[in-house]
Write a protein that binds this DNA or RNA. Structure first.
Length: 268
DNA sequence: ACCACCTCCTGATCGC
DNA sequence: TGCGATCAGGAGGTGG
């Protein structure tokens, strides 16, 4: 599941590869993912830049902006035109250098939204987005948490509160600061809110750096998935011993999401 | 207004 | 072996 670091990696690879190219044509193989109006508006447009907001990728084109969200399993691949279409390649962008950029998404959850330079920041989904850990003011974050009565785990996944964190890094951040995921937001102190923000910055940066090392690999393989292994402390490690105390990591469900934590180290 | 829960979708995995 | 049930999850939508 791509979160901010993976999306940053994908954005960087895409930018290095296709900035300046023109979209000659587009094949849509799953209509619900992109309507004909969007498709036709994109054809003939040049890719001036590629940017990222939280987990959203923005293709900044000549006249319009295409906002792409990978959700859980979206991936981009570069292929030559003669390579056969795979089952889960739903959108194929034919580029002016003769290559095709293919959007691959097993579960079809990914989204594409067409916006203008005029409205893209003032309409959904970007106008709903909170600040990223890098930009957020810890005091403001604390105040926002205080106004709510939800679990801190749920809060970290709320993209309007803080952008870019998904299920994996939410668990990892809480493990780092020794806070139990069930802890209510209105009980989080200013000191703890600061710790959460700083841990978030640190963990996301480490993940981006780890992704950065794989960028070269992905480029040479013509694939862009943004997946890489960062050593995880708790996430997806149910029953494995905690690195710190050796107790088995516990899995629980919070607001419908798997949450992994150490019952001894994460007490507060 | 706020928050819990449902929905989209497919493949992997599990139990019988 | 095979089949149905269950689960995974980001974010928008719904309903209490």
């Amino acid at each position: 599941m791509p979160e901010l670091p993976e999306v940053e990696t994908v954005k960087t690879v895409l930018k290095n590869r296709i900035q300046g190219l023109m979209i000659r044509d587009i094949d849509v193989h799953y209509e619900r993912m992109m309507d004909e109006d969007t498709r036709s508006a994109l054809i003939g447009q040049t890719i001036l830049d590629i940017t990222r907001f939280g987990k959203y990728i923005c293709f900044m084109l000549t006249d319009v902006i295409l906002i792409s969200h990978l959700r859980m399993e979206g991936r981009y691949f570069f292929k030559t035109e003669d390579e056969p279409l795979l089952k889960h390649e739903h959108i194929v962008f034919h580029l002016s250098d003769g290559l095709s950029l293919r959007y691959h998404d097993t579960r079809k959850f990914g989204t594409f939204d067409l916006r203008t330079y005029q409205n893209y920041l003032s309409t959904k989904p970007l106008n709903q987005l909170g600040k990223e850990p890098f930009d957020i003011d810890p005091k403001a974050f604390y105040e926002a948490l205080k106004k709510k009565h939800i679990s801190i785990k749920t809060a970290l996944l709320d993209q309007t509160l803080i952008a870019g964190i998904g299920n994996i890094y939410a668990d990892e951040i809480l493990a780092r600061v020794s806070i139990i995921p069930h802890r209510y937001t209105d009980e989080i102190t200013l000191k703890e809110a600061k710790e959460i923000v700083f841990a978030g910055i640190d963990i996301l940066n480490a993940a981006i750096a780890s992704g950065g090392t794989t960028i070269r690999t992905y480029v040479s393989q013509l694939g862009v998935s943004g997946r890489f292994q960062l050593k995880l402390k708790v996430h997806q490690r149910e029953a494995e011993p905690c690195d710190t105390c050796g107790r088995p990591i516990v899995r629980t469900v919070i607001n419908g999401r798997s949450s992994f934590y150490c019952t001894k180290c994460q007490k507060r």
